[in-house]
Design a protein around this nucleic acid. Structure first.
Lengths: 291, 291
DNA sequence: GACAAAATCGTTCAAATCGTTCATTTTAAT
DNA sequence: ATTAAAATGAACGATTTGAACGATTTTGTC
């Protein structure tokens, strides 16, 4: 788990000579820092980004502190989902990390990883819970693990540009499911946005204040549970009315069934993160037509 | 807080061997003073200057910047708390990271950082919220930031030994404050335990299952809020009765006022993480007397 | 103040890394 | 197929790093 890494470690992990690695560093392909004595040190996040961009395989992942066999196997999304599910239920963070980083290195978009693997795994956990096959603590522990992995992925993403569009969002009061809004933030960051999740259980009054203070280009509301439907709809309408044309208000979440949506106005309703990504890309391109 | 730092502290904090650090001192890269006996002492200001100038991008880029700590003024815990508070309210993760890693550089124990700075900052945020000075979303966003920083700190800790004692814990149903249980897990990991937080809002039924399945040496329950007092006490008593002698059951949290505690049995009640750390150390030493 | 444990001293040494050069292999274009 | 350009891997002496060692200092406790 050492970070930053030495050139020798990385060279052996990737399976190339130290000479090549040094050249890549000097050409700026891998972000490099120097010790006071002039030796190179390579932050893990930069190495992973390089591997991903250049479609390199990891010969010896364990050297980087990653689980053995990360970055060499062929993963179908369904196999990944299976493995992740087992890891989450067992509380095995190592297994989960391997699955996620494998997918990341295989150049899957963050949105795809979240949609097809993480979200699906938790949907399955929910089903298993209904059947009494998994305990609540296993689901909660899985959420903790997933949150960590999302954060680790964020560390591997480049920092957003200073002029990148901003986005904020969260879940409304009565919805404690913070994982979903965390995934939204990460997916938007993957697109280059300066996205910040405000967390979960946020009353509409404070959501209004957040939008008013933050002036984002996009605001998302992830709704996995609704306490009082009428109140929710009314307060949401107020928020939409107040900010709608200036701020793109995007909603999503399994609690927004069709009959609920029919009583809502929104800039976009997104079933999943790929929909959201498409919309965000479109929005950014349209409002910033020249760049 | 001790201002002149020992080489060991600094070496550990910036991730370099003591040998190299000593050489850098002798080469004049880091201003060094000597004790009467010849031991090196490194003023914090000089160390920070060295990090900014020579190690521009080594290890933790977030250490550089240091808006307020660069001055020769004492970087007291209360000043750190102040800065962290402002960063949390403003949602500025960079500032918060600087504060925390400054402290990590200057202090050994994570328990102290959590107790004196993070927990205190959130207590202050709670007060400000009562006065209507901060919005709920600022508190929630602060929690998100703090969670990330705890996770980053954990990444800096060595992995627990294979034979390390295990501990699990969480917050009961009705208590959504997951930050506290996350801090407990981190403090125990700092002591070398294999600690896992199960998260928040856990019904007692599933807590029992978790203890039964995990067989930890220590179980903690962090209680920041109690929904139904009678039910809480009764279910807690059941859990204690079932596992008490084999598993050390530790409780804490601001919801456990004195009158509540008087109706509870526990291996230890901990006001803060330093109490918990003492107890955990004692427990480990007693049950593993030879090693 | 005396004592024991822990930390630090200065030093030495093997391993790793530096920058550089050069021969070989791979890639791309003619 | 031939050739030029580019990338790779291996080698070199000089320097840096991390770990070890016994001797000394600091720290905590009685």
């Amino acid at each position: 788990m050492k970070n930053p890494l030495t050139p020798k470690q990385v060279a052996r992990a990737i399976g190339v000579s130290e000479s090549s690695l040094k050249r890549w560093c000097d050409r700026g392909l891998i972000p490099t820092v120097r010790t006071a004595g002039g030796h190179r040190r390579l932050p893990l996040a930069g190495v992973l980004r390089f591997l991903r961009e250049n479609e390199h395989r990891l010969e010896r992942p364990e050297i980087l502190g990653l689980p053995a066999s990360t970055g060499q196997g062929e993963w179908t999304l369904s196999r990944a989902r299976e493995h992740l599910l087992r890891g989450l239920v067992a509380g095995d963070e190592t297994v989960c990390r391997q699955v996620i980083f494998d997918l990341y290195l295989a150049e899957q978009s963050i949105a795809t990883i979240c949609d097809e693997v993480i979200a699906e795994a938790f949907r399955e956990i929910g089903d298993q819970w209904d059947c009494g096959n998994v305990e609540i603590y296993q689901e909660r522990r899985g959420c903790e693990i997933a949150s960590r992995l999302l954060f680790e992925l964020q560390l591997a993403l480049p920092a957003p540009a200073a002029d990148a569009p901003t986005a904020i969002g969260g879940t409304p009061e009565g919805d404690p499911y913070s994982l979903s809004t965390g995934m939204v933030a990460l997916a938007l960051r993957d697109l280059g946005w300066r996205a910040t999740s405000l967390g979960s259980m946020l009353p509409f009054s404070t959501l209004k204040a957040a939008v008013a203070n933050g002036r984002p280009k996009l605001f998302w509301l992830s709704v996995s549970a609704i306490d009082h439907r009428e109140q929710f709809l009314q307060q949401y309408e107020e928020l939409f009315e107040e900010f709608s044309p200036q701020v793109a208000i995007v909603v999503g979440g399994r609690a927004l069934t069709e009959d609920v949506r029919q009583q809502m106005r929104y800039a976009a309703y997104c079933d999943n993160l790929r929909h959201l990504s498409s919309f965000a890309t479109l929005l950014h391109a349209q409002t910033e037509p020249i760049g």
